[in-house]
Computed example of a mutant assay.
Amino acid sequence: MKIAVLGTGGGGRAHAARLAELGHQVAVGTRDPETTLARTEPDVMGNPPFKQWLADHPDITLATFGDAAASAELVINGIDGHNAVQALGAIADQLAGKVLIDYAVPYLYNPTTEHPWPTPWGVMPRLDPVDTDSLGEQIQRALPDTSVVKAFVTQEQDTVVDPARVAGGDHTTLIAGNDADAKQSVTHLLKSYGWHDILDLGTLHAARGMEMYAHLHSAIGFALGGPFGVKIQR
């Protein structure tokens, strides 16, 4: 399958590498490929320059967001939440008729708050939107001809692509969306990654809870200092 991964951060790299390993034809999308390839310093999360990573993955191509999406049958959104709606809306035509898996969290970084939450890497970002809306729903409204599925957002992306790294894979991943066929496509992809317990939360309204969980996920991660999963017991 031809799959586009939009975003060159650690999460996008994890998906692109795993998908190529599974035999898919993968294109990574970025705003400006020349600028991305010209970077010589690690990114804000400490990932090595993308050019260096790409040299180790010769089967993966780099393109603009629009070109990557245009050639794909399935698209994964890893664009940072603050810029996702604008960036995706600009390529609505290339995304029309396709399934878009969204794992972005609507973080606003370095917020000024009355009671900041200190973390090992700075002040905890603020969620916007929160509670009465979600980034997933905003993206769906901006892309009425695209089937948006919220997924991958309740684990670190290294764990999403390799669930066996935690408890041998015996934990739960969550999805939500308005189109049953689109969710089935995402379920199929998750199973190929190695997931066995995939819980469908229903319509895209559930993306609100999935995105708000990000703060709890961070708190657990800080406490444990390593990868973890959450098992939903029925």
Rank of each mutant, 00 (worst) to 15 (best):
V28P: 07
A55C: 06
I198E: 00
G29M: 08
A176G: 09
A17Q: 14
W121V: 05
Q52G: 14
H24V: 07
G194W: 06
L108N: 12
L74R: 07
W53V: 15
P227N: 09
Q157I: 03
I60K: 11
V148F: 05
P42K: 03
G169A: 02
G209S: 09
Y103F: 11
Q140S: 01
L189Q: 00
H171P: 13
A90D: 07
D179M: 08
D133W: 05
V123E: 11
V105K: 09
G229V: 02
A104F: 14
G10Y: 02
T8G: 09
L174F: 15
A70T: 15
T132D: 13
S185F: 12
L100V: 07
R13V: 14
T112G: 11
N178C: 00
I60F: 11
R141V: 02
T132E: 12
G89D: 01
V186Q: 13
L108R: 14
F152K: 02
A55V: 10
G209Q: 03
T113L: 15
L6W: 05
A142V: 05
P125C: 10
Q184A: 15
G46E: 05
A142W: 00
L189F: 00
T173I: 11
R13M: 09
P33F: 12
L190W: 01
L135I: 04
A96L: 01
H82L: 15
V148W: 04
G209M: 04
A17D: 14
P58V: 10
G46N: 05
D131L: 12
L95F: 06
K150A: 01
E114W: 09
V148L: 06
K98P: 08
L204P: 10
D59Y: 01
A72G: 08
A72L: 07
V99E: 06
V44H: 10
E211K: 11
Q86R: 11
T36P: 02
A104N: 15
F65L: 11
A20S: 08
I175K: 13
R165E: 10
H82D: 13
F65T: 01
P125L: 07
G29R: 07
L54K: 04
L95T: 05
I198S: 03
T61N: 00
H215F: 07
Q184D: 15
V166R: 01
A90M: 02
D181H: 12
